[in-house]
Amino acid sequence: MSLVFTGAGAVRPTGPTPVPDLPWPTAHVVEGLDFAAVLGRKTVRFNNRTTNLALVACGEALADAGLEVTDDIRDTVGVSFGTTCGSVTGAVEFGWDSFDRTRPHMVNPATMPNTVLNTTAGAMAIKYGLKGANSTVVAGPLAGLGALRNAAVMLHAVHADTMLVGAAEEVTGPGAWFAHATRPDSLPGEGAAVFVLERADVAIEAGRRPLARLGAVRSHTGDVRRPDTVCDAVAETLDAAGIEPERVRWVAMRVTGDSVVDAAQRVGLGAVLPIEPEDGIEELGDCYAGHAALQLAELVTRARTEGWSRDDAGVVVAADPDGALAVAVVTGWSDDDNPLSRHEENR
């Protein structure tokens, strides 16, 4: 069963921007985006920034795919969304209200959903009428690829025909101080990327042309300070995707801020792949939970615009110094891959 990307939406940071009252003088933030104008005042009124970023990217992905969620299919369209811990800012602001507001009510109940992990996945389903399988994957820097892996499982198990899959990260006061406490050497970034991932037969039957194919996505635990851990994980995922290393045309990784882990990533990738990885640090900063998803958006764009074949591939690697690693392999798509055409030929 082939899984394909038929739409992609991304909200990227505009570059290093001066930010007041944060532990860094600058951050890679999204500027000039009027959430109310894009999503409507009612939608954004009580949502946190992570959710609004994801909703914009989700709308772009649906439009890119030409996917209209009607009553006939909405029960088969699901969501798989990656995060670190939901919105840090949403939780902090709700908690602060319990000290700051007067009794007896003390807090604004409309903001309570911002304290839970799955508020963004739920908001995506509500905004766009998606009633299929709905999951939130909590995986820190592996969140984007973890959500992709979960979406693939949902599709292979036929719990859904189509999945909206992605991840996001926000730069806000509480979020930035949390990031500084856990990874002080990383310049923070924010953004979101969402994809329409579906079974190839479903997409083609509906008239949606695939942009790229998901070759394989795998997650691993192990000592990511060792290059052979990275090398073995990438080699295993390439093998699962049926891709020879010399056919890899683009590679991306995230700079973790741990020099030993980052060196291990580069050495391990260099041992199995013929090209140098890109880290996106100058364009994205460290988008943490959203970083791999934004790199995946770049990969899908390259596969689409450069006309990759099924034998051409890109690789995205996400590492967590605490001992986790995820790898995704995405290939191009050609009309020869059409499962419906092959079925007709075999009749």
Rank of each mutant, 00 (worst) to 15 (best):
A203Q: 11
R226H: 00
L145R: 02
L164H: 02
K127W: 01
V317I: 13
A319R: 10
A168C: 15
V116S: 12
T237S: 00
V30M: 11
L164W: 05
D100L: 02
P339N: 03
F46C: 08
N52Q: 15
V88C: 12
A297Q: 04
T102S: 10
A252I: 03
T120V: 15
S87L: 15
V69M: 10
D72H: 12
K42D: 14
A57F: 04
V316E: 08
M154V: 06
A37Y: 10
D72W: 09
V330W: 08
L3N: 08
S334L: 05
G66D: 07
D258Y: 02
Q265T: 12
V248K: 00
G207A: 13
R347W: 08
S219F: 00
L130N: 07
F81Q: 04
Q265C: 14
V255D: 01
Y128D: 01
V4L: 09
G140H: 04
D312F: 13
A241C: 05
E60G: 05
E244K: 11
L130D: 11
L187S: 14
A328L: 08
A292V: 02
G90S: 10
V138P: 00
V217A: 11
E198T: 12
L33Q: 15
R41C: 09
R302N: 14
E170P: 12
V77A: 11
S259K: 05
A235N: 03
D75Q: 15
G215D: 05
E278Q: 14
L273P: 06
V56W: 14
A318Y: 09
P188H: 08
I275L: 15
A110F: 14
V300T: 11
N134Q: 12
L211Q: 12
L148P: 02
D311F: 15
N346A: 09
E205Q: 09
G7R: 01
L55M: 10
F81N: 03
A200Y: 05
V44Y: 11
V255Q: 02
T102N: 09
R218V: 00
G207R: 14
E205V: 01
V251Q: 05
D258G: 04
L273Y: 02
V327Q: 01
V44K: 11
A241I: 04
T102G: 08
G175T: 13
D228R: 00
V88S: 06
H105F: 09
A235W: 05
V4N: 11
R249A: 12
H180C: 10
A313L: 06
T120H: 10
A203E: 08
G95S: 04
N346V: 01
A157W: 13
